[in-house]
Amino acid sequence: MSNLSKGSTAPGTSLGRLARSPETGSFIGMIAVYVFFAALGGAVFRGGPGFSSFLNMASEVGIIALPVGLLMIAGELDISVGSVVPASSLTVAIISGHYGAPDIVGILCGLGVGILVGYVNGLLVTRTAIPSLIITIGTMFGVMGLTLGLTILIAGSTGVFIVPGPVTTALLGQSIGGMFQVTIFWWVAFIAVIYYVLHVSPKGNWIFAIGGDRESARNAGIPTQRLTIQLYMLSGFAAAFVGVSQVVAFKSAQVAAGQSFIFNSIMCVVMGGVLLTGGRGSVIGIVFGTLTFAIVNQGIFFTSFTPDVGSIIIGALLLGAVLMNDTFRQMALSYSTKKK
């Protein structure tokens, strides 16, 4: 909201506005975590290697976390991203690697797989009364099984190799300075687009309204079903995009990859201050949450702790984030009443 609130005529003080923004809590969390690992991780963590390691990780989770966050603000979950990542990777590897078609064909098909899975998710969620958690777990297993079965049927193994062309590599799999993956730039592009959708365009208002009360939103004339399907297609597309960039970077695709994205994306979103039941959240918050997650996840390797400690910290952070977000939300709600 920062660039919008500049033109504000609202008499609310900056403290009130701060408490009202869902990203305040996640920003504090991110700074705390960075200071902690900067102190313990030493100069290496504070330098290029540290930055690149957590930015690389953040960019991959972050691309998926953004649309998953939009869905969560709209009151829905998407578990299927975990199987869309390997499904799109293998689609690219099979079409452009195994069959040797041009890279662009494989990439478009890979992205198409994600959009298709998202469309099916959206259709099932809007046409049935089954909770989206169950539906997307179902489609996740379905897609996982199909990916495994078809890969073995076509390629005869669970891993497929690909030699991407120079343009493809430059766009999707390049490392800058040998450290910073090009996906970081794609993440920034995703942030810009999703920020526009949620906070600048009028559609963002619809997403908040759907998450607040679907029935009232529908009565207000918002095409809730179409919007929900579009949001699922967006998250399918984002997951497929990560799958495509992984296969280009690693030059191979594995059936088993991608499961970690399910919980990681949800954790980034929740740490970013998005209300699990919908209706509240911000893109900047999700970005902070993603960075927090990535800093802990990678920072732990720069310290003398065993990596297991990292999981404990992430678990504690998640609980802390939810508690803190609740507090900030209460402040946001009660702030105005105090003013009377």
Binding site: S201, P202, G204, F208, G212
Partner: peptide
């Protein structure tokens, strides 16, 4: 019915006032 939305945003749910800046439609 949208407790977590601002007064201005919830007032205009579904009929948002917009302005255009270049190719972008802005709430």
């Amino acid at each position: 019915t949208f407790p977590l939305m601002s007064i201005g945003r919830s007032f205009f749910v579904g009929v948002e006032p917009t302005k255009r800046i270049g190719p972008f439609t802005i709430f």
